[in-house]
Simulated assay, not measured.
Amino acid sequence: MTVDAHHHVWDLSVRDQDWIPQHSPLRRDFTLADLAPEARAAGVTRTVLVQTVTVPEETPEFLALADAHDLIAGVVGWTDLTRPDIAEELARLRQLPGGTHLKGIRHQVQGEPDPEWLLRPDVRRGLTALADAGLTYDLVVLPHQLPACAKAAETLPQLTFALDHLGKPPIASGALEPWAARLRALAALPNTVCKLSGMVTEADPASWTVADLLPYAETVLEAFGPDRLMFGSDWPVCTETATYTHVLDVTRQLTAGLSVTEHTAVYEATARRVYDL
């Protein structure tokens, strides 16, 4: 059994995905009907659906989708963490159809100009409400924002922080530092986990190889350990450079040295534990 801990869906007739460049191959609908046969062919039986845009309507739609399809075991949605009634809003979301599938919240921190956005008092209040509700927080950040992630995780030990896409290291350039040092500082905190996801997107789209990804995969394996790592396809963003099956195959090559127990952690057990699937 394999759990895909990170993928998306979108329907451009419902709303625009304004982060997608105008002529990108991603500028079309990607639905669960598109993903399901690919996941099945790859042996993936459960997934975590992750937010894409910062609008309140998306999360209820994703919860309803999870309610209707067994493939989706959990949803990482979006809500405004700074709203004064954040605790009540989280409770409201959980009462919606499919509300039991809400497992975490994510915000596009990578787009925030303040590198210490996570440390703002109003954001910290929202993060505390997530912890009180038993939810996780997904971190989509750039390398220069990792120190703030570590500070936030250190001051909120009761909240699990899940780092998406390894913190977006500069794989295309081949540089490891200062990303690696910042990542290790975050991984030193026991309430943090990391997704083996998004690597092909950060690599050179025209010429990347498994060898290009290996130093970054090895860094997170050493820093977090298999018990705090989980596979994520980042479908359909990954399709710019690799198919769903290819991404899973490459990730398995990068983790070929793991024991059976460690392999189970990365491809199933960690996601089940972190997201209470």
Rank of each mutant, 00 (worst) to 15 (best):
residue 249 D to T: 15
residue 271 A to V: 04
residue 205 P to W: 10
residue 219 T to C: 05
residue 209 T to M: 08
residue 234 D to L: 11
residue 256 A to Y: 00
residue 241 T to I: 01
residue 251 T to I: 10
residue 254 L to D: 06
residue 207 S to K: 12
residue 209 T to I: 10
residue 244 Y to I: 12
residue 262 E to P: 02
residue 261 T to K: 08
residue 227 D to I: 00
residue 237 V to T: 13
residue 236 P to N: 06
residue 204 D to R: 04
residue 265 A to E: 13
residue 215 P to F: 04
residue 248 L to C: 10
residue 273 R to L: 01
residue 237 V to S: 12
residue 216 Y to R: 00
residue 228 R to S: 03
residue 204 D to Q: 07
residue 206 A to L: 11
residue 249 D to P: 09
residue 226 P to Y: 02
residue 227 D to F: 00
residue 252 R to V: 05
residue 249 D to E: 15
residue 267 Y to L: 08
residue 222 E to I: 02
residue 271 A to W: 06
residue 256 A to M: 00
residue 271 A to D: 06
residue 215 P to G: 02
residue 241 T to E: 08
residue 244 Y to S: 14
residue 251 T to K: 03
residue 263 H to E: 10
residue 248 L to S: 10
residue 205 P to Q: 06
residue 233 S to P: 09
residue 242 A to P: 13
residue 271 A to L: 06
residue 264 T to Q: 13
residue 266 V to E: 05
residue 202 E to H: 00
residue 206 A to T: 12
residue 216 Y to W: 01
residue 261 T to Y: 00
residue 210 V to A: 11
residue 229 L to N: 02
residue 205 P to S: 09
residue 209 T to R: 14
residue 258 L to E: 04
residue 269 A to V: 08
residue 269 A to T: 15
residue 230 M to Y: 09
residue 213 L to S: 03
residue 244 Y to G: 13
residue 211 A to K: 08
residue 243 T to Q: 11
residue 239 T to H: 05
residue 263 H to I: 01
residue 205 P to V: 06
residue 254 L to N: 07
residue 261 T to C: 00
residue 273 R to Q: 08
residue 206 A to H: 13
residue 203 A to H: 05
residue 251 T to S: 13
residue 237 V to E: 11
residue 237 V to W: 12
residue 213 L to H: 02
residue 242 A to I: 11
residue 249 D to I: 08
residue 246 H to W: 11
residue 233 S to Y: 09
residue 230 M to R: 08
residue 252 R to S: 08
residue 227 D to R: 11
residue 201 T to S: 15
residue 259 S to R: 04
residue 252 R to H: 10
residue 272 R to N: 09
residue 213 L to W: 04
residue 254 L to Q: 09
residue 257 G to V: 08
residue 236 P to R: 09
residue 228 R to H: 03
residue 261 T to G: 03
residue 228 R to F: 03
residue 227 D to H: 11
residue 211 A to M: 01
residue 252 R to L: 04
residue 209 T to F: 09
residue 257 G to R: 07
residue 201 T to H: 07
residue 266 V to W: 01
residue 253 Q to G: 12
residue 244 Y to L: 14
residue 239 T to F: 10
residue 241 T to R: 12
residue 237 V to D: 11
residue 261 T to D: 14
residue 201 T to R: 10
residue 238 C to L: 14
residue 232 G to E: 08
residue 252 R to K: 14
residue 216 Y to L: 01
residue 203 A to C: 08
residue 271 A to N: 05
residue 212 D to I: 02
residue 206 A to S: 13
residue 250 V to P: 02
residue 240 E to I: 07
residue 270 T to W: 06
residue 208 W to M: 02
residue 265 A to Q: 14
residue 227 D to A: 11
